[in-house]
Simulated assay, not measured.
Amino acid sequence: MVASNATETFIPAFIAVWLKLLAPDECYDEFFVKFNVLHVPCLKVLISKCLGYAIITGSFIVKVPQIIKIMKAQSGEGINLVSVTLELFAISAAWAYGAGHKYPFSAYGEAIFMAFQTVSISFLVFVYSNQLAKGLAYLSVYVGIMAFLLSPSAPLGLLAVLQACNIFTVSVSKLLQAATNYRNSSTGQLSVITVYLLLFGSTARIFTSIQETGDTMVVLTYVVAALCNSIVAAQFVYYWNSAGTNTNTSKKDL
């Protein structure tokens, strides 16, 4: 099939394989065989795929600024560990749910990379609080749980329950961090780059989830995530010139 389409459209087979990641099945024919570039349903698929893979690409580094900032300061001050753990739960549940339901990788792939980075942040908070043993225990428990959730032994019903809990978990996670910022009158060691990338990602995921999964539970989770991320993002603007923020970090230290 690839060879045939590639011949009809003068597109080499190895390029056709990559193009089909963005325009699968009928949409490949519409765009590259019939040259119907204004086919609206396929344009939606193309936009969704491009956004999805852009989010996944960004997820490789989305929390790296946060990790660097903690390591540079050698402090997890201002990082609410309960909030980070709840966020890790939400990310990991989305990963397991997407994989378990065999959704397209472009619909949930960023959760994999964000999970590794988020658990690293939790571990660093333990390390810089002189609680290495607790940090190692935290990692061990997380790895064990994910090994089960990603295995064929994990019931789809359980994964659905975890995904349903995400709506509550995401909101509580972000609101806890927002409350910590409010109490400290500062965003502490939070990274403005990470926070705004998360806001962009959760907002874009509303569209891609509607397009690629049609799963109401997943869509609603990202709607809540976008709203809550916007609260934390707004706090950066509000506390940008606060004494607390300037004490903990330079404005240039993002």
Rank of each mutant, 00 (worst) to 15 (best):
V2H: 05
A3H: 13
N5M: 13
N5V: 09
A6S: 15
A6G: 15
A6N: 13
F10H: 15
P12A: 15
A13G: 14
L19T: 08
L22M: 11
D25H: 11
E26W: 06
Y28W: 04
F32H: 03
V33E: 11
K34W: 08
V37E: 03
H39T: 02
H39F: 08
V40D: 00
V40F: 14
P41Q: 06
K44C: 04
V45R: 06
K49R: 15
G52H: 03
A54G: 06
I55S: 04
I56F: 02
I56N: 05
T57D: 04
G58A: 09
F60H: 08
V64I: 14
I70P: 02
A73S: 13
E77N: 11
E77G: 08
G78I: 05
I79T: 07
I79K: 07
V82H: 06
S83H: 02
T85I: 13
T85N: 01
L88C: 09
F89L: 00
S92V: 08
A93F: 00
A93D: 05
K102C: 12
P104W: 05
A107S: 02
Y108P: 07
Y108M: 03
E110R: 02
F113E: 06
A115I: 07
A115G: 04
F116A: 08
F116D: 01
T118E: 12
F123A: 13
L132V: 13
L132T: 07
V143M: 12
M146Y: 10
S151N: 01
L156E: 06
L156Y: 12
L158C: 10
Q163Y: 04
C165H: 10
S171H: 05
V172M: 10
N184A: 15
S185L: 14
G188I: 02
G188W: 05
G188D: 12
S191L: 12
T194C: 09
V195E: 01
L197M: 12
L198T: 03
F200A: 15
G201Q: 08
S202C: 02
T203H: 05
A204E: 04
A204D: 05
R205F: 07
T208V: 08
S209F: 01
S209P: 07
I210S: 03
G214S: 12
G214D: 07
M217G: 10
V218A: 03
Y222C: 01
V224K: 03
A225G: 01
N229R: 09
S230M: 09
I231M: 10
V237E: 00
N241E: 13
S242A: 10
N246F: 14
K252N: 12
